[in-house]
Amino acid sequence: MKIFFDGGCRPTPGTIELAVVVRGRATILRDQGFGSGTDAEWLALIEALRTGLSLGAEPFVLLGDCAPVIEQANRRARARGSSDDHLRRFLELAGERQPAVRYVKRSQNLAGIALQKLHPR
């Protein structure tokens, strides 16, 4: 199962909003605190993980378009500052079941597309 995630804030830093899309259904969470774009991406990834875990034993992959967060979640890059805190929360939530976290282009990220619809140009 594919679970798409994306987070953002306007302005940056600013109020965080995030989206998770699974099985064609978008869940958008607004007013998720104050932070940077990176904080928003981490919170979206953590929400996507919660969503996947809540759906049961079916294997899932988490798909997002923020390469630095994905590299850190996969332990291929060092997380510093608030990213380190977010990584610890992510790993604690994942437990023994380390989910696949993969990069997709912005144009293919259904969660990013859902967030973009909130802010037409």
Score class of each variant (00 low, 15 high):
W42C: 05
G35R: 07
L63Q: 07
A67Y: 06
L43I: 09
A57H: 11
L45W: 11
Q116P: 00
R88F: 03
G8R: 13
S107Q: 10
G95Q: 00
D84R: 14
Q108Y: 03
L29S: 12
G33C: 04
W42F: 09
T38Q: 06
R50A: 09
G95S: 01
L45I: 10
G35F: 07
V22E: 11
G14C: 14
F4T: 13
L93M: 10
N109Q: 06
L93Q: 08
P68V: 13
D31W: 02
A73G: 11
H86L: 01
G24I: 06
S54P: 05
A57T: 14
R30V: 05
I3L: 12
K117G: 06
V20Y: 08
A114L: 07
A94E: 02
R97M: 00
E41P: 10
R23S: 14
G8M: 11
T51N: 04
A44R: 07
E47F: 00
V22A: 15
C9T: 08
I113L: 15
A100D: 04
P120M: 02
Q32T: 09
L115N: 02
I46F: 12
V22I: 10
L110D: 01
R50C: 08
P11M: 06
G14I: 14
P11K: 11
A40C: 05
F90T: 01
H86S: 03
S83R: 06
F34S: 02
H86M: 05
R80L: 10
G35N: 04
I113E: 10
D84Y: 12
L87Q: 06
R89T: 13
D6Q: 13
K105F: 08
L53A: 06
S54V: 04
E92L: 14
D84E: 15
R102A: 12
H86N: 05
R23C: 07
F5V: 09
S107D: 01
L53W: 05
V20W: 08
A73S: 11
N74T: 15
R78K: 15
P11R: 10
R88V: 13
T38W: 00
T27H: 04
G35H: 05
A57N: 10
S107N: 04
F34R: 11
G7H: 14
R89F: 03
L53D: 01
D39M: 10
H86I: 00
R78Q: 15
G56A: 07
F34G: 00
D84S: 14
Q72P: 13
R78Y: 11
G14Q: 13
A57C: 04
G7L: 13
P99G: 00
R30T: 12
L93R: 05
R121Y: 01
D65F: 09
G24Q: 02
R30P: 00
G81F: 02
A79S: 04
R25N: 10
I16L: 08
G24L: 05
L87P: 09
I46K: 14
R97H: 07
R10K: 15
D31C: 03
